[in-house]
Design a binder for these strands. Sequence first.
DNA 1: AAAAATAGGATTAACGTTAACCTGTTTTCA
DNA 2: TGAAAACAGGTTAACGTTAATCCTATTTTT
Lengths: 332, 332
Amino acid sequence: MSILLKDIAQATGFSINTVSRALRGDAKISSSTTKLICETAQHMGYMPNSIASSMRSNHSKMVGIISADSANPFFSEVVRGIEEMASKADYHILLASTEESVKKECELIKMFLCRKVDGIIAMPVFDSSPAHLDLYRSLKIPFIFPGRRLEGLGNHSILHNDRDGQRKVIEHLISNGHRKILYIAGPKKVSNTTDRLAGLAEAYANNALEVDPDYIVEASGHIEDGYYLTNQALNRGMGFTAVACFNDMLSMGVLKSLYENNLKVPQDIEVFGYDNLYMSQFMQPSLSTVDVPKYRLGYVAMETLIQHIQDPNLEYSTKDFPTRLVFRETTR
Amino acid sequence: MSILLKDIAQATGFSINTVSRALRGDAKISSSTTKLICETAQHMGYMPNSIASSMRSNHSKMVGIISADSANPFFSEVVRGIEEMASKADYHILLASTEESVKKECELIKMFLCRKVDGIIAMPVFDSSPAHLDLYRSLKIPFIFPGRRLEGLGNHSILHNDRDGQRKVIEHLISNGHRKILYIAGPKKVSNTTDRLAGLAEAYANNALEVDPDYIVEASGHIEDGYYLTNQALNRGMGFTAVACFNDMLSMGVLKSLYENNLKVPQDIEVFGYDNLYMSQFMQPSLSTVDVPKYRLGYVAMETLIQHIQDPNLEYSTKDFPTRLVFRETTR
DNA sequence: AAAAATAGGATTAACGTTAACCTGTTTTCA
DNA sequence: TGAAAACAGGTTAACGTTAATCCTATTTTT
């Protein structure tokens, strides 16, 4: 059916092994032989069978990516960074999304293991069940968590100072005179939610203010949550003067709700997002937010993963990127 | 290192082959034996090596997905449909994006072939170069094009009446009295651009109107194009009273530009998108658009692909889903 | 009661590649 | 000048599964 090493061996008169080595650029094969073999392979339209190669060589040149939420462009950006680096290093990607389900996450890991990926990059659900953690701990292949962390596996993470970023946002709002700030938090099962809430608490504490739990509402992180939760808070007459969101998608829903309720942004209410999605600058009004280096996160995660694949003894160490506030039209 | 069929064979006293067949539910193995083997496998924590399985059985249970543009949530939705169906049928996905580059598309196909995928689902670039088409024609595995088409391979497509949808949009605008409609087209290298432009032409023809090429501008399909092209048209004093876009992302940029130029939507200018992204209902103002069954497109594409994998003699036939206009706040 | 069919499983040989080891020349340089 | 390297490539045996074939009791058929 298709061209095999055997066929090239026959055509050139060399052994299968020599052909295999020549095609892989083995230095033991003379350059003239290598050239002849490569050209013959080219002409015959040889395509290596990576399944067979993986089988024998014990590495698949594939890494498994576990994304979290396909509805949020945040993750597309991270994955784009991963892909870019992967492609440079001639790795390929097996991609799937958990939609924030631990069960699915565990299944994916097992699937990746069966498929013999060389490493895993995951945006894991924050779930402290032993089964989940043990699964990661039992992994014999390298794994990296870009943008998220997992209890006890902190050094596998590449983070971006969530706590710091959220603290700055809240401090800014407080210094602008706001005392009733509605905070739309992310889902509990995401580490960033916890970290950003810690940043919020810190900001209040730094200003000797109490956190009012009524002004912290939980969301799954999608646009509609921002919309409905803002409507709800408004209906309850909570009288907030600023809204800080766990992410930009939520903010988009918030802006919609505020507009429909005839509240002017930023005059009546200031709004802050988090993530700095590309689209946020085109929201109406354009969104003030916290920039997270999404692409870089993915890129570095892949880069780091490859280092660990190449040197299994390499120690893991947390990286932490700085965040940066981006002021646009939703703040004064 | 890890548990193999061999180990289960040793533990149960059956042959490797019997273990393999029992685990796959072969009817030739008695139910008591099957039960014993499966339970033992479970206890020992057996994980099948899909690489080895693929190698021998000649099917990988993987399909390659070629997406087009990672920045557009349209494709995430399609991929979600693909994944859902794939997961039901126990297929897994190798996903990559061309970012609309034919070169990358061809490379991806070859990569998928090397990795022995059982089929391919692609959103191909519309490029009539022989190399590109021949590559698809030479494929010995099934392939489906959801939402796009390729010259001469029309029956591999699952479409959604692009021409019809765009015609309705333009006819609606014309019937609303608009005579100067700015149309922001997609990139030439996407079949939908051509088809939607045909729909536009049809609408004009049906109303005995001439198409003014000056009012048709080309874009790559991203938010910023909508923004800059609208600014540009405004600066040129083109005096249009409606804007129809190739997709919703463009519309988001258009809305931003119009707002910044103090033009009220829909009072001064009506705007129509295309795709009906989830987020479009939250744009400010919410976007009138054409609904495309994105998820369904992906789902059916995968479903169809599996049918073709299971029956290689099955004839290909184009499917065509109906579109539906969605009226929101950007139209009167 | 002998032949045929069936159930249940064992043996053997692949799948296409690469790793490990081996062999025969040619260089090198002490 | 001769022994050790270096060079260039060949041989053989895997990797873990599954397909194809074969075997042997037991049951069914006639």
